[in-house]
């Protein structure tokens, strides 16, 4: 009979170890079914948490062969088709593990609190009569409200894995964006400021958070939206904003990036000068033309259309 094997990365509070469990395959089941089967029939000490088993409570996210997913929703047949009948199951990455597949949410929530994840209502509204919001305004927050705090995005975030000290878990940016985008909220800067101060421009754009979110939340998109808002609010005195603005300026100027100016506009002349060895290497390979620092790029053919498009986008954003 066909057997499924889970190689589970376990932790008992002091040591980590991998334990294998095998059980008979049944069609139409889920990863969580397998975990429950092990706990019920093979080893009651296997520790994981789960509640709703319908992909809405966020408790059961684990890593299967290196990919975060909700155990309750992940169809076993699909997963084994992709990875084979032996699966490696581990707790979420970028979380402190408590035991086996159980991770600690407390530090994450402490960080989330920094973006004031609650509505700061406009003065015109009251608790007695509630709020008003148009259907179109409601739509602007309808994806962010899908977040179930499962941690899948945080688990797979490459920036967090590299260094979490200057970056939030992706869902925290989505939470901030939920309130920034909410027409009922008056505290844009209060939600945004902590994000600007902690990593808003440091997302590495790997899009793993979007790919891994089981509820179609798009943290990387929300990070982009928060960046736009921060620039709109005039918060441009940072590398990220300057870099973005330099991009826009170049495009308007010539329709192309000016690598030399870009560096100077983003980092300033002094810091750019410190990158001279790197610039020389680029120069040797013909990647940059130092003259462009003075002359700028020659406008591309059709620059007028580029400018027209940019204007249209700006209009549309209003």
């Amino acid at each position: 009979m066909r057997q499924i094997t889970y190689k589970i990365q376990r932790f008992d509070g002091t040591k980590s170890f991998t334990q294998e469990y095998s059980f008979a395959h049944e069609p139409g089941k889920t990863i969580l079914w397998g975990l429950q089967k092990i706990k019920d029939t093979l080893d009651a000490s296997l520790t994981f948490v789960a509640a709703c088993r319908s992909a809405v409570c966020g408790a059961c996210a684990v890593r299967v062969n290196g990919h975060a997913m909700l155990a309750c929703e992940a169809a076993l047949d699909d997963v084994v088709e992709r990875f084979g009948d032996t699966l490696i199951i581990a707790p979420l990455g970028n979380f402190k593990v408590i035991r086996d597949l159980v991770v600690d949410w407390e530090p994450k929530i402490e960080r989330m609190k920094e973006v004031k994840p609650w509505l700061i209502p406009q003065d015109e509204f009251t608790a007695a009569s509630g709020c008003r919001q148009s259907p179109a305004e409601f739509k602007k927050i309808n994806t962010q409200t899908n977040c179930i705090l499962c941690g899948s995005c945080a688990s797979e975030c490459n920036k967090l894995s590299a260094d979490g000290s200057d970056f939030y878990e992706p869902f925290i940016y989505s939470k901030a964006q939920k309130f920034v985008a909410d027409s009922r909220d008056k505290g844009d800067w209060e939600h945004l400021k902590p994000a600007v101060e902690r990593g808003l421009w440091k997302c590495v754009h790997c899009q793993e958070c979007i790919t891994k979110c089981p509820k179609h939340v798009e943290p990387a998109e929300d990070i982009a939206k928060l960046r736009q808002t921060s620039i709109r609010l005039g918060v441009t005195d940072n590398l990220g904003a300057r870099h973005a603005l330099a991009f826009v300026a170049d495009l308007a100027e010539s329709g192309r990036l000016n690598e030399v100016k870009m560096a100077m506009r983003t980092e300033g002349i002094l810091r750019t000068a410190a990158r001279l060895p790197f610039a020389l290497r680029l120069l040797r390979k013909g990647k940059i033309n130092p003259l462009h620092a003075l002359t700028g790029n020659a406008p591309v053919k059709g620059i007028e259309q580029v400018r027209a498009i940019m204007k249209a986008v700006k209009e549309a954003e209003k």
């Binding site: 609650w118 009569s129 509630g130 919001q133 309130f179 009922r184």
Partner: peptide, 14 residues
């Protein structure tokens, strides 16, 4: 219900 609207519950709207 009005109160939880004020708390931030994102209700669908007419």
């Amino acid at each position: 219900i009005n109160e939880i609207d004020y708390f931030g519950v994102p209700f669908s709207r007419d």
